[in-house]
Amino acid sequence: MSTLLSVKNLSIQFGGLKAVDSVSFEINKSELLGLIGPNGAGKTTVFNMISGFYCADHGDIIFDSENINKLTAAQVNHKGLARTFQNIRLFRSLSVVENVLMALQQRRHKGTFSDWFNSLFNTKAHQLTKKNLDLEARELLKIFSLDHHSLELAGSLSYGSQRKLEIVRALATKPKLLILDEPAAGMNHQETEELNKLIRFIKEKFNLTILLIEHDMKLVMNICDRIVVLNRGKKIADGLPKDVKCLPEVIEAYLGKKPV
């Protein structure tokens, strides 16, 4: 098995607070890794560093044998890394299909001369590209059975559908690694079940590697191949779900120390 992403001794400090302190872990190709930990453990911070929003003070992030630590969020995406957000960030007043198109077109239109020329003169090539992109977007929506909503505004969708659309949009950038930031936040039991299926499904369908941050233990235990546990900015465990579950450090981090 080859490594897709490896994080080495990652640290970042906000003011006096060491939010993440020498965290290292690896994700293998087509693995589903769960990153868990109690509130304030630094999970989202690790995410933000990987996806290029924060620049780590120390350590390296190697993606596909390239160091991506100094790259911006956009450049990280170009390397093949897509993410969703804990609090949904859709383009709310764009239609559902436009949300997907916006992500799709980043691969097609990079602002070259011919991009500008074709769209200015509305050439045959441009019309064709437009049509193809549209088809591609609708197909993608169809896979997730969002196609009958495609002309509605993204902001008017139900909460569950918005989550789903955000994942679809991330997939539209054709990533190698998909990072999901608490996708089950705010979902009820049944919706979480569906999400569970959805994540398995996209992993198979698109042959993806997935990094998942989650609070919902049940979801994590069910679907993750491996789990990394953070607490107070440090990694405290790394292993198979059933092993990690029983480690005293992990139980302590979540429930506190057992009285002696």
Partner: peptide, 15 residues
């Protein structure tokens, strides 16, 4: 338009 709506999300899409 996407930048107007949410620049962070737009950036994550690779823009």
């Amino acid at each position: 338009w996407a930048i107007n709506e949410d620049d962070i999300a737009a950036e994550v899409m690779g823009l």
